[in-house]
Design a protein around this nucleic acid. Structure first.
Length: 638
RNA sequence: GCCGAAAUAGCUCAGCGGUAGAGCAACUGAUUCGUAAUCAGUAGGUCCGCGGUUCAAAUCCGCGUUUCGGCACCA
């Protein structure tokens, strides 16, 4: 007898091996219909999987958190089937489920056009309507390689050849289409339903390696029902509305133009935002024991050679040849310059930890395809600092940094921060025991700071392990902002030293750290995160005084003066326009507060306070309103 | 850097071989109005750049530049 234990604890006995589909049918006809897959002892498998021993079994329906991935993986297969039907000369490669959808990479000499996408999508609908059973088969490896080679599917054959010997090769057949796949899959193509849409075609390298040929990737999105699909498409539209490039123009924050690719022209309002953020960070740094410096933009090649940047990073550096034939480089990083300041005079252990900060303007020649608004640029300013310390101080400095970082992100409205811990890469400098200590210190410190880290194996810098702090933006993209890297190498290369308690000369450890990463990128994220509706303390224009008639002009000027007197960023709108017009315009400009004044307010010394997006108004005495706004505009942590 | 797409007024876009268009914005005038668009008028263009095809090119073709979507990159 085989005992099948269901999630509710109940048991069913079978006197012979039984498939997931049969179990579902035995439980009830409704479940049989909605069953998509089966979970055997926690592992997701095809519904047709035959269970031959006692097991914990759960029937997977669309409610299962992993069911969507199953659906999307099927969508990829159905798309591949459609493509093979329409364009038989195409070779298929891989097609996984991804967040919100799926993709499939194809090899085909002719590019897919948007018209092709419509055809493929229509064919996919037909394949769903055919409701072809999806059947698993297994094949011995050599046979599978020959099978796909005979079909002209060189990529599939290559994938199979790279699967370790002795493993059975899983194939899935639906109609005339057969694909290498580890599964599991839905029982038939009809289960995919109609809630999918092909989104775009893009290039992608075979096996993700830029030395390989480029394949054509078709992206799609897939959901269990049309409402979910529609909600997703609406979400994409909303995300587009908060794109920082669009808001940057609409809110007159910055612009970019062809003559300065990868650089930003900051307009008065955008620069106000920048200075607000910079002043805030500067105060945070002062409060946590940093000193601020400023180092040269142009530095002779010899320093970059000594630091190792010339060799490792030279291709990304802008260089300048002077008239006396010296080669200078525009600095891509601040660290070598900070070491130069450290090296002046003799440092004692009493000077450590020395926390040296700079709002360092750096230039890097980024690949042309990498540029993205102000998020990825060639000229940027880091909130950079290097902490020169002893090895013993790594933990306490890391804990302090993590706390600082948490406080700052919180002040900007980011509560959910993910942390990646990148450990030793294959090619690295320094002894293994040094790495042991550095990695242990970083892990211990992040735990002490209450951070949960995920391992990013082998992704550390060549000179030391690092923590990376990742924020997710409105369109679901991840942006690495903060970082903390332990460095034993640069102090050695640039000969930085201090005198220890025992009178011996020692090498300091350097902690490279940044909270925002770069101002450009962080401000871009901030714009998208708030959709341009900045909290009061960040808003470039905090208050607009708007008149209802010209009779109130003089009083409006008085109101403006009292706002400015307390340091609020205020503007005045005396135009001969209806108040409806003014309200609309300043709302679109995303000004958080409007003070509306008409004859009544002028006579009583009051203002009508209206908040962005709100319908209600509040009539306040001028003095009360000013006091209220000042407190609301207070910079956090001040 | 690689694949694909795009570039027309300040913005959003139409026009796709035969006189360069609309809405909003701008400017001028009228309107003095109570919480998301008052009315009328005026002006605004190297149709990304350079070549080519053609009687004729914003439109078709080639090269280049930039942007967008991905991929790779983000030391």
């Amino acid at each position: 007898m085989i005992a099948i234990t269901l999630p509710d604890g109940s048991q069913r006995q079978y006197d012979r091996p039984v498939s997931g589909a049969e179990i579902a049918r035995d439980i009830g006809p409704g479940l049989a219909k909605s069953a998509l897959a089966v979970r055997v002892d926690g592992v997701m498998k095809d519904l047709a999987t035959v269970i031959a021993a006692d097991a914990q079994v759960a029937i997977v329906t669309r409610k299962d958190p992993d069911a969507l991935a199953l659906l999307r993986h099927d969508a990829a297969h159905v798309m591949a089937e459609a493509v093979k039907e329409l364009y038989p000369e195409t070779q298929v490669t891989i097609g996984p489920a991804i967040e919100n959808g799926f993709y499939y990479d194809f090899s085909r000499p002719v590019p897919f056009t948007p018209d092709d996408l419509a055809l493929i999508e229509a064919r996919m609908q037909a394949i769903v309507a055919r409701d072809e059973p999806i059947l698993r088969e297994e094949m011995e490896r050599g046979a599978a390689v020959r099978f796909f080679e005979d079909m002209g599917e060189a990529y599939k054959a290559e994938i199979i050849a790279s699967i370790p010997d002795g493993q059975a090769i899983g194939l899935y057949r639906q109609g005339a289409f057969i694909d290498l796949c580890r599964g599991p899959h839905l029982p038939s193509t009809g289960k995919l339903g109609k809630a999918f849409k092909l989104m775009k075609v893009a290039g992608a390298y075979w096996r993700g390696d830029s030395r390989n040929e480029m394949l054509q990737r078709i992206y799609g999105t897939a959901w269990f029902d049309e409402q979910e699909l529609k909600a997703h498409l609406t979400m994409l539209e909303e995300a587009e509305k908060r794109d920082h490039r669009r808001l940057g123009r609409e809110m007159e924050l910055f612009h970019q133009q062809d003559e300065a690719v990868g650089s930003v022209f900051w307009h008065p309002k955008g620069w106000t935002l920048w200075r607000t953020v910079e002043a805030y960070i500067r105060r945070r740094l002062e409060a946590t024991g940093y000193v601020e410096v400023k180092t040269p933009q142009l530095v002779d090649r010899s320093l970059w050679e000594a630091s190792g940047h010339w060799e490792k990073f030279g291709a990304n550096m802008f260089t300048v040849l002077t008239q006396d034939e010296r080669m200078l480089a525009v600095k891509p990083m601040n660290c070598p310059c900070h070491v130069q300041i450290f090296r002046v005079g003799i440092k004692s252990y009493r000077d450590l930890p020395l926390r040296m900060a700079e709002f360092g303007s750096c230039h890097r020649y980024e690949p042309s395809g990498a540029m993205h608004g102000i998020m990825r640029v060639r000229a940027f300013t880091q909130d950079d600092a290097h902490i020169f310390c002893t090895e013993d101080q790594i933990t306490s400095e890391t804990v302090a940094f993590c706390e600082l970082l948490k406080a700052i992100y919180g002040d900007f409205g980011f509560e959910d921060v993910r942390v990646k811990f990148s450990d030793r890469p294959a090619i690295r400098a320094g002894a293994d025991e040094t790495w042991d200590r550095a990695e242990a210190a970083l892990l211990e410190a992040s735990a002490a700071a209450g951070l949960e880290t995920t391992l990013n194996p082998g992704e550390g810098a060549f000179y030391g392990p690092k923590l990376e702090f990742v924020l997710r933006d409105a369109i679901g993209r991840d942006w690495q902002c903060g970082t903390l890297q332990v460095d034993f190498v640069l102090p050695e290369r640039l000969d930085a030293s201090y005198i220890a308690e025992d009178g011996q000369k020692r090498r300091p450890v350097m902690l490279h750290r940044a909270v925002l990463g770069s101002f450009e990128r962080f401000l871009g994220i901030l714009i998208e995160h708030h959709a341009g509706r900045f909290p009061m303390w960040l808003a470039p224009v905090q208050v607009v005084v708007a008149t209802i008639t010209n009779d109130a002009d003089d009083y409006a000027r008085t109101v403006l003066a009292s706002l400015k007197a307390v340091g609020l960023r205020a503007e005045i709108d005396l135009r001969n326009e209806k108040i409806n017009f003014k309200v609309r315009e300043h709302s679109l400009a995303k000004v958080p507060v409007m003070l509306v004044v008409g004859r009544r307010e002028g006579e009583t010394g009051s203002v009508a306070l209206r908040r962005l997006g709100g319908a209600a108004q509040e009539i306040l005495a001028l003095g009360d309103a000013v006091a209220k706004l000042v407190s609301e505009a207070a910079v956090p942590g001040a």
